[in-house]
Simulated scan of single mutants.
Amino acid sequence: MATEDLQRIEDPIDVMPLMHKAFRAVSDRTEAMAAEATTFDDIARLTETFGFWVKQILYHATVEDEVMTAPLKDNQPARDNETEHAELAGKAGDLASFIAMGNAAGIEESVRDAAFSLEEEQHRALEEKFYEVESALKDVLGEKKVTARTIRHIHSRLLGVRILELDHFENEEAFVCSLVRDEIDEAGQLYMIRKLLMDDTADDPRWIIDWVYSELDDTDKALLKDLESRLKGAVAQPA
């Protein structure tokens, strides 16, 4: 459900587009940083920003699977939602490792793309040769600068995560949220939304909701503030 022109979020699950909006703001910034990176300092900042994005994705997906998808287990959209979470988390984790590799990342990505296009029986024999070339190219580069190849491949992987994220959000808002709206009462919805926005295991339980606030405009902040006032009694899972 779109949040434009709303004065109040009636069904708690309809806060989800606001949370997704916050995610898109982070992924927009991360993609822009990747496209503009030219130095090792740029890569370091990109790694930090992407790490925060991954932290949010993993927490969000884990809690959704626990408190939102689990009650809807028998529904196909809910099962699809869990599959998308696993795929998204995997892509994000792979990219975090990829960024940390620096200049070798672009070379290794090209090597693997070539290897995986070959027949299975050729992989073992050719991979050893690929690694020899990779090592030689890395020595030539000398890790003295961030190359255009590194940036291209990081950016390409980042786009893969973004596309998957956007597809997932679209599916969730169109199908899963409607199931929650129809099948889980307000108390149950408030409980799951509180779990998504408040991390009671963290030193700062508000680290998620405060981040979401920081990414929203004043109108959306007011909607979230109104909903937050309804979360205070949603600490325990409804029977």
Rank of each mutant, 00 (worst) to 15 (best):
L58W: 02
A136E: 15
K21L: 10
F50N: 04
F50C: 01
E228K: 14
E10H: 15
N103V: 11
S117C: 03
R8G: 02
E172I: 04
T201Q: 09
D94W: 10
I193A: 02
A239Q: 12
M16Q: 12
A61N: 15
R8I: 02
A37L: 04
A174S: 13
V67G: 06
Q122E: 14
V54C: 10
S229G: 15
V111C: 08
D28R: 15
T219E: 14
Q7F: 13
L158T: 05
E119P: 11
V140L: 15
S97N: 13
K232M: 08
V212L: 09
L158S: 07
H153K: 15
A174D: 11
E215K: 15
T38H: 08
D41L: 11
L72C: 07
R157D: 09
L18I: 03
K91S: 02
M1Q: 08
E4K: 13
G90W: 05
D226C: 03
E127F: 13
G106V: 05
Q237M: 09
L158V: 04
K195F: 00
A100H: 01
S27K: 06
P77K: 00
A25E: 09
Q189W: 01
L196S: 05
D42F: 01
E134K: 14
D41I: 04
L164N: 10
R79Q: 14
D94A: 12
A114D: 12
D113K: 14
D204Y: 00
E82F: 05
A61L: 02
D139Q: 14
A44E: 15
R29T: 10
